[in-house]
């Protein structure tokens, strides 16, 4: 190491801070496990899927309707937001004149920072009544999908924009020199070259869609049921935690921590997938 004592002191100080930063994830997992352990021990994992319903006060702990809720909302919004977000990035990079592209990108950057509670509020006062007038009751899976789409769209749009920007210009020049048309170049050269960046974007937006709580809580109606149509109200895992944490005690509280663990597992799987795709770092 270094011969300066102050260097050694500094290094240990920095190592200390880094250890704290690195340990938070472990701490989170430890606490989730510790808090959910009681219910896992005397209820068991299988009952979270086989119980007749979710009535934690009556010791019935079926999480499947909420899992379906999370899954449907997530899949729906990712399916809509991905093409929209990628097209919006393509617009920014290859279609819009510079005078339009710059403010458009600023707009998207701004939207990435709007709090979920504001999106949720807008959904509650504008979107839900609108859907309700088409097909009551209004708070529904559809409302959730639309709000989630709006929320995750900036994520995929910005990541896609950044990965399109990273496509080497020599590819575009080479393709143009071969007399390829604009969409021909985008589809045939730009997309394959930006593939891993685009996939990372999809993973990031999926993570956001799974983890989103407030907005979806505000527009989905929160009825514990497996939805049969787009207009059925649903409750997601995250909304369930937010709704019941305030009064949950004992096993009920522990069961909520179990859903927290499930969420963590989903995110860990996504991070692993991203790692696998990019063989590198994913955030930022």
């Amino acid at each position: 190491m270094s011969r300066w004592p102050i260097d050694r002191f500094l290094l240990w100080l920095l190592r200390g801070t880094a250890t704290i930063a690195g340990a938070i994830v472990l701490l989170i997992v430890t606490f989730l496990v510790m808090e959910s352990l009681p219910v896992l021990q005397h209820v068991g994992i299988s009952r979270f899927f086989t119980d007749p319903s979710w009535h934690p006060t009556e010791r019935l702990y079926n999480l499947t309707p909420m899992l379906w809720g999370t899954l449907f909302a997530m899949v729906g919004s990712v399916l809509i937001a991905t093409p929209l977000g990628i097209l919006s990035a393509v617009f920014c990079r290859y279609y819009a004149p510079p005078a339009v592209a710059r403010p458009y990108r600023k707009l998207i950057e701004l939207l990435a920072g709007i709090p979920s509670v504001v999106y949720g509020f807008w959904g509650l006062v504008v979107l839900v009544p609108l859907i309700g007038s088409i097909h009551p009751p209004g708070p529904s899976l559809l409302a959730g999908i639309i709000i989630l789409t709006i929320m995750i769209l900036p994520t995929i749009a910005l990541v896609a924009d950044a990965s399109l920007a990273n496509v080497p210009q020599q590819y575009v020049r080479g393709a143009a020199a071969l007399g390829l048309s604009r969409w021909g170049i985008i589809q045939g050269v730009v997309f394959p070259a930006a593939k891993s960046g685009l996939l990372t974007g999809v993973i990031l937006e999926t993570g956001r869609a799974i983890g989103e709580t407030m907005a979806i809580l505000m527009v989905c109606g929160n009825v514990v049921q497996t939805p049969h149509s787009l207009f059925d109200p649903i409750r997601t895992l995250t909304a369930n935690i937010a709704l019941e944490m305030a009064y949950a005690l004992g096993d009920h509280r522990a069961a909520l921590f179990v859903s927290g663990l499930v969420l963590m597992a989903m995110i860990a799987a996504l991070v692993a997938a991203a790692e696998w795709i990019s063989h590198g770092r994913i955030y930022g």
């Binding site: 020599q170 080479g174 045939g188 070259a193």
Partner: peptide, 14 residues
């Protein structure tokens, strides 16, 4: 009608 070869070889990532 007019092809071009660049200084740095630029095959597509395909």
């Amino acid at each position: 009608r007019v092809g071009m070869i660049f200084q740095k070889p630029n095959p597509f990532p395909l």
